[in-house]
Design a protein around this nucleic acid. Structure first.
Lengths: 183, 183
DNA sequence: AAATACCTATCTATCAGTAGATAGATAAGC
DNA sequence: GCTTATCTATCTACTGATAGATAGGTATTT
């Protein structure tokens, strides 16, 4: 019971911090804002995450688990390659529409050189895991865009453009282009 | 003479602010840091840019001019479409290598929803101008990736991945893929 | 030409607000 | 009685911002 309660509170903190980060980057989250968002005092947030990088790393790791869970198996033999990549694209698109914010990896990747070392390491690890997933999903697919890094970075860039120009469809169009040129 | 001196000082301030922003976003630049970087007092920075959004807008507008100047004419009839897009790609790649930081539009686009209105408007305008340039450069080109928004967002995403994974080559590879699939 | 007034760019000094962080008290659960 | 999770209270450092002084240049007036 107490373990659940702790976890619930910790989860609330991480969800709040994720929202702030995805809105304005790592510097846009503060212990005070998260605390008042969750309904506790800032010192209580420090209890769970003594230093800010601890909080950042936890947010990234939780996000990483969540996203890879949602993506599921990259190498289901009953699924054509196009459908796998379309699934990846839909995951990003859903995240953009539901949370009305870009992907966490996107914003933290953009400001990577201004992040504390531990956080930037966590972000790199997240990217590596996403690349691994996408490479498995591609599984020998051919085409000018059949490259895990290319697909991922194009999707991430598409999210940035989509929010900047307030054109959420741009992400969907990008997914379509990437999928169509696979074979 | 005095006009030149003013402009030089303002330029120093803008260059310093751009460096800070491209490292860690809009919140990573402070009047004090810029001032000590330039060798003046923070109040002198306030003299030239009373409020922080003023500074942000000026940095974006200066960057926009610089980049579009460097890009030159998008519709030179003596130049094939592939070469025009390759030129765009080289501009980004050069900026990444020289400054060892991602594009300003990239980082500010990523944190757009956390920016002051005036700055976010300036960033949108910058993107619009880049799209205009690229649409002119494409001039009826065909191919699965022959779309201004797609090319630009892919390039920007590629910069993020390149700095995050410390693989500067990823940007060059992306440019090659984008150019090759044009016809 | 001299005197006056204004403008520019900087300085010093200071402000209220917020940042991350810590110490110590308190209460509940096992 | 120890652990967990919270609180109150506080600290130092830094944030953007402002007021007021100063020195040097420019323009206007006499």
């Amino acid at each position: 019971m107490e373990k659940n309660q702790k976890n619930e509170r910790v989860t609330e903190i991480l969800e709040s911090a994720e929202r702030f980060i995805r809105r304005g980057g790592f510097n846009a989250v503060s212990y005070r804002d998260v605390a008042s968002d969750v309904g506790i005092k800032s010192s209580s947030v420090h209890y769970h995450f003594p230093h800010k990088p601890d909080l950042g790393v936890a947010v990234v790791e939780r996000y990483s688990e969540k996203l890879l869970d949602a993506l599921g198996d990259p190498s289901d033999p009953n699924e054509p390659v196009q459908e796998r990549i379309a699934r990846l694209g839909r995951a990003y698109a859903a995240s953009l529409k539901e949370d009305k914010a870009i992907c966490l990896g996107c914003i933290l990747g953009a400001e990577i050189s201004g992040l504390p070392q531990e956080v930037s390491d966590a972000v790199s690890a997240f990217f590596d895991r996403m690349i691994d997933w996408t490479e498995l999903a591609l599984a020998g697919a051919k085409g000018p865009t059949a490259d895990a890094r290319f697909i991922l970075s194009s999707l991430q860039g598409a999210m940035v453009l989509a929010v900047t120009l307030k054109k959420p469809n741009h992400l969907d169009q990008t997914v379509r282009r990437l999928v169509q040129s696979l074979s």
